[in-house]
Simulated scan of single mutants.
Amino acid sequence: MIPAERYEEYYKALLEKRTEYEGVFYVGVKTTGVFCRPTCPARKPKFENCEFYETAQQALLASYRPCQRCRPLSHPNHVSEIVRLLVEAVENNPEKRWKEQDFRDLSVDESTARRQFKKRFGMTFVEYARARRMGLALKNIRSGRTIIDTQLSTGYESSSGFRDAFSRIMGAAPTLLENSKVLKASWIDTRLGPMIAIGDENTIYLLEFVDRRGLEREVERLRQKTKSAIIPGITEPIQSIESELNEYFDGTLTVFTTPISLLGSPFQKSVWEQLTKIPPGETRSYSDIAVSLGKPTAFRAVAQANGANQLAIVIPCHRVINANGDLGGYGGGLTRKEWLLHHEKKKRLRH
């Protein structure tokens, strides 16, 4: 059971439905006998009626039953049946232009599809399907097909409409993409909430929690630095990092082997290299990293490089803390940082 001194913090997170606490705690409600996630949409109980647990198993053992609204025994951000059905339909016919009748044929309410896709992917279903069509368009252009052929095959009668849609999704007009790279972005569910992974067929460039502040700017900087189009999709490195993250959160993996690409200055790369040398379950201060680089006064620059890391968990910036023992900052939120450190420390003590 969670120490009582954390109750007020967790109760505040419960009232605010804070996503960064997903997987960190569960709350048992004495008056109803149910237990919930931190983000449960149900009416909030009084503080004195709450008990907090680290795992769903602990709540079950305390005789609480799972809430029917937030379903704490399912995976956080679990894919709904409607989302799964529509994603599968898009993959079966990615060039399809969706109309009202198509939703009726699948017995899916169009407004429900819009809402669930917006919550899940940050875009409506129509935008998702359009992005998939555009991915095929890009593939056609790169394989030598003309712009006009590609425009017509993806269902755009107007060339200006095609170019506008292409630019909005890909970040560049089709004629400008002939010599550029293509990166694919995928959603990965984890114990601490969803992450986004971006990579090509060889490496991972970005791995961040979806609710990280400033993520949009990070993605845009990546696109500019690599001169790339970024589209929804899966690559072997993305599949690899998803598998390794599952093992990491299960406590069976401590070293990531998925190939990564580091985009930064020589100093930033030297800092990131030092981060990978910090053993799981241990921490270092910004000053410690500066000393290890032979630049003992550069601790502020180390902190900035630490914050510029775009590969959360894999490049373990969460293992760097203040010299006085305080956690310091973390792009994914201090609650996640504390959880990660505790998780790694428990793993180390068991071995």
Rank of each mutant, 00 (worst) to 15 (best):
M1V: 15
I2W: 08
A4K: 15
Y11I: 14
E16H: 12
E20A: 09
K30V: 06
T31P: 01
P38Q: 10
C40H: 09
R43A: 14
C50M: 14
C50F: 12
E51I: 05
Y53V: 07
S63H: 13
P66H: 13
R71T: 14
P76Y: 12
L85C: 09
L85T: 15
V87A: 03
V90S: 07
E91A: 15
N92L: 12
N92V: 07
R97N: 13
E100N: 08
Q101F: 09
D102N: 08
D105H: 14
L106N: 05
D109R: 06
S111V: 14
R115E: 10
F117Y: 05
K118R: 11
K119V: 11
F121C: 02
F125V: 00
E127Q: 13
L136S: 06
L136W: 07
A137M: 02
R142G: 04
R142C: 11
R145D: 04
D149A: 08
Q151D: 05
Y156G: 05
S158V: 10
S160E: 04
R163P: 03
S167H: 14
A172Y: 11
L176T: 07
L177H: 02
E178Q: 11
K184E: 00
A185D: 04
S186Y: 05
D189Q: 12
D189I: 12
T190N: 05
I198C: 01
Y205L: 08
L206K: 05
E208Q: 13
R213E: 13
R213S: 15
G214R: 11
L215N: 12
E216H: 11
E216V: 08
R217E: 11
V219W: 01
E220D: 09
R223K: 08
R223Q: 07
T226G: 01
T226R: 01
T226E: 01
K227D: 06
K227T: 05
P232L: 12
I234C: 13
T235P: 05
I241R: 11
E242D: 15
S243H: 15
E244L: 08
Y248F: 12
T258S: 00
S261L: 00
S261V: 01
L263M: 01
S265D: 10
P266R: 15
F267A: 09
V271S: 01
E273W: 06
P279E: 07
P280M: 11
R284N: 05
Y286P: 00
S287W: 02
G294A: 00
K295D: 02
P296M: 03
F299L: 03
R300C: 00
R300L: 08
A303P: 09
N306G: 06
N306T: 13
L311I: 15
A312F: 06
V314L: 13
H318S: 03
N322F: 02
N324I: 10
D326Y: 14
L327N: 06
G329D: 12
G329E: 11
Y330G: 04
G331I: 06
G331F: 03
G332C: 01
R336F: 04
H343I: 04
K345Q: 14
L349W: 01
R350S: 11
